[in-house]
Design a protein around this nucleic acid. Sequence first.
DNA 1: TAGATTGTTAATCGATTAACAATC
DNA 2: TAGATTGTTAATCGATTAACAATC
Lengths: 210, 210
Amino acid sequence: MAGHVSDAVIRRLPGYYRHLRELEAAGVMQISSQELGERMNLTPSQIRQDINCFGGFGRQGYGYRVSELKGHIGEILGLTNEHICIIIGAGHIGCAVARYPSFSREGFRTIAMFDVDKEKVGTTLEDVPILPMEELESFISAHHVDIAVLALPRRAAQDTLHRLYDGGVRAIWNFAPTDLNHPEDMLVVNVHLMDSLQQLSYRMAHKNEN
Amino acid sequence: MAGHVSDAVIRRLPGYYRHLRELEAAGVMQISSQELGERMNLTPSQIRQDINCFGGFGRQGYGYRVSELKGHIGEILGLTNEHICIIIGAGHIGCAVARYPSFSREGFRTIAMFDVDKEKVGTTLEDVPILPMEELESFISAHHVDIAVLALPRRAAQDTLHRLYDGGVRAIWNFAPTDLNHPEDMLVVNVHLMDSLQQLSYRMAHKNEN
DNA sequence: TAGATTGTTAATCGATTAACAATC
DNA sequence: TAGATTGTTAATCGATTAACAATC
């Protein structure tokens, strides 16, 4: 059970969780690092190292119990506690997130959305009210919010981050296509869709080089 | 000008492009690796190493010309040529992609969407026709397609990938929450939204550990 | 020219892989 | 017990950082 958990390991953890859930759904009870490695395109060594950052969840000569390991990793990922979320921006991306079934299934509960568009304000989306941006401060002072989903234009993102920070929100899932400056005690995880697509474009352009 | 371009560099390239565009829009003409590093949270050394994978785009004693470097990186990313795309799945995510302004602005042109829902089939979205899934094969044999965006449920993803491969499509931008098996000469880049959110959840749960 | 900053080589650091004793 | 596979230490590999000569 090693001490430090590197970024590389954290990036892989949700993949473990996803594969273990698929295996569990397929009725697989037990798996070795060898088999899991073939499935996930990792070496058995790496899998054992990764898992042992958190404890000895396997058994020699046997491997890992699928549902037990999935349970451990789910807990490590913090999925056992519910996360209260608000979504800033009721555009296409904000609405796609609000309606994404796994979002609520995995314990991320949206309690409000915010938008500047007066047409949208006052309506609801999947029972979630869409409130005017002006009410952001009063809302987050009245309700505990774990995560704010930023699904708004680039120009509004940085300012909104500060308003959220001042209101006590300490975690942001950012879809705005920019890197935000943020205080040290605030967590920001980016979903830079265009970055991802450009990586694909790069690989297409350089396919025949290796 | 080093030979091999590592995955780590490829992942950072779109970030360079993004920051350089912001700098260009802000009217900045020139930048040193020192300043760019502060902006992007990278060391000056790393920036110079990264850029020198592709050529000596800077000048000693001066730094880099912002728009020139942006141009080079855009070309390296393959953004100079247009990419013809189809979107499989006209649900919330598929539609969000279709309507995402930067998608077309950066040269990714959607020529068709596909869905199983008879209600949606026959309509258009931003002038793009929504076709029935059964017409996938005939469509891709009649039109050249560079990239297929997979925005459909997990259970349909793997089968659709094979249909696309058989039809000659060799690049996939995958939003389905699963890791797809694919032939070696097919490129797949995943956008695992839940993985990203779970990384945030992990960091929230382990904030006070370091 | 002097000062600044790159391009590039060398040193360091960290992550991945290999090996193997422990043990189920 | 014998066989299999983990947990963990050691070796390797690759990426990041530091250093500095080249040069604008």
